[in-house]
């Protein structure tokens, strides 16, 4: 499970680089995203534009992170592909997120950023 992180005005864009956000990846995804959330914010904008398949385990991972957000933080979603959009609509989870058509471009993080960012830019 790979992410790239870009800084935007009020937080970060987290771009998910894998094509499948499924049960085989869900725990790994959740652990890594939790780590990102802990060190960034307040806005966590999750760019799912490269994800062309997600199942209920992937959705559950996103929801678990949302549930555990610090009070100061918020999570929004962007660039849902048809198969991902379907899962959000079927479960009505499209109603609990702000969902953007596209993700804004941010400022890419350097791979080394204070020496405390093992995740950033990790492939």
């Amino acid at each position: 499970m790979a992410f790239t992180i870009e800084d935007i005005a009020d937080g970060v864009v987290v771009r998910v680089c894998d094509a499948r956000l499924d049960a085989a990846q869900a725990i790994h995804f959740k652990d890594r995203l939790r780590d990102v959330v802990g060190r960034n914010g307040p806005l966590i904008l999750l760019d799912l534009g490269k994800v062309d398949f997600m199942d209920s385990s992937g959705l559950g991972a996103i929801l678990a992170i949302r549930r555990a957000l610090p009070r100061t933080h918020r999570m929004e979603l962007a660039a849902l592909t048809p198969n991902v959009d379907r899962v959000f609509r079927l479960t009505r989870m499209d109603t609990v997120f702000t969902i953007h058509e596209t993700a804004p471009a941010g400022t890419p993080r350097p791979v080394r950023n204070g020496g405390t960012q093992p995740l950033d830019g990790l492939a």
Binding site: G60, R67, T91, R92, M93, V96
Partner: peptide
């Protein structure tokens, strides 16, 4: 019926069979 969305979101699960039956 699923629980109300905000409750389902907090449960963060239980969607699988709902999806299966729906599709």
């Amino acid at each position: 019926r699923m629980p109300a969305p905000e409750i389902a979101a907090m449960n963060a699960g239980g969607f699988g069979w709902y999806i299966i039956r729906d599709l």
